[in-house]
């Protein structure tokens, strides 16, 4: 047993039966620890700056171990009650986020704020309307419908009425389905004599006309 990895130890033990010589063989195991030389070097660095005068091992008074124990607390019970509000918050956040993204996309695509606010007022169906002015007194809706029906399919004729006397005003709007029909009507009825009046016909400003429509509907129902 003269191997280099073993150590032998002998001792003599005396008992009632007699004396024994006990030999112990101890095996030496080499354990290798891999260390980072940089870390080892940094462990022995001298201190600098505010703690220049201190040596390694002197811990400053400003570094303390907290008196109280702190745990990673499971807070499942408390949070379960808050889940309802949490859901609402999640939804509110998502809505906010969506609104902002929509707005950014609109800005990126070149739309301005003004156009965006005006958009819902405009109906989805395309409409082309013609403003007919200098109409004779007490003009009937059917007369205009028949007259402009020769230029194209008339969707609607609207004659605004005065606010005070509820009498027809001297102009009207005629709505067509297509732009071509509206242009044809303008061409056909320019300076057209109706009764003692000469009509003047032009493309209607969509904004003005739209403002008038709901009012007429209200009055019409009465």
């Amino acid at each position: 047993m003269a191997d280099a990895d073993y150590i032998e130890r002998e001792h003599i033990e005396a008992t009632a039966d007699g004396t024994y010589k006990i030999t112990t063989h101890i095996k030496i195991q080499n354990k290798t620890v891999i260390t980072n030389p940089d870390i080892e070097r940094r462990k022995t660095l001298p201190k600098f700056g505010d703690c220049k005068n201190l040596s390694k091992g002197d811990i400053e008074g400003s570094i303390n171990i907290e008196d109280k124990e702190v745990f990673l607390q499971k807070s499942s019970q408390v949070r379960a009650e808050e889940n309802i509000t949490k859901f609402n918050l999640n939804r509110a956040h998502k809505e906010k986020l969506d609104a902002l993204t929509r707005r950014e996309r609109a800005i990126m695509s070149g739309e301005t704020e003004e156009q965006k606010t005006r958009r819902p007022i405009v109906t989805e169906r395309e409409e082309f309307s013609v403003k007919v002015s200098n109409l004779p007194d007490n003009i009937d809706q059917d007369v205009l419908q028949n007259l402009f029906g020769t230029a194209g399919r008339v969707r609607k004729v609207f004659i605004p009425r005065g606010r005070d006397d509820n009498l027809p005003r001297d102009f009207a709007f005629v709505h067509f389905d297509t732009k071509a029909e509206a242009e044809k009507a303008i061409k056909q009825f320019k300076d057209y004599p109706l009764g003692h009046h000469i009509l003047s016909v032009e493309m209607a400003d969509r904004r003005n006309q739209r403002r008038n429509v709901p009012m007429s509907n209200r009055r019409g129902r009465k």
Binding site: N36, D38, I39, R42, K43, L45, K47, F48, G49, D50, C51, K52, K56, G57, I59, E60, I63
Partner: peptide, 28 residues
């Protein structure tokens, strides 16, 4: 390597610490 950590503060100083055991190495 994880043997040092740094704390920076509004008071104009950055401190370096050894992480195990926690002890201040110095300040910048």
């Amino acid at each position: 390597d994880g043997d040092l950590f740094f704390t920076g503060s509004f008071d104009g100083k950055v401190s370096v610490f050894w992480s195990e055991p926690v002890e201040r190495l110095g300040t910048f």
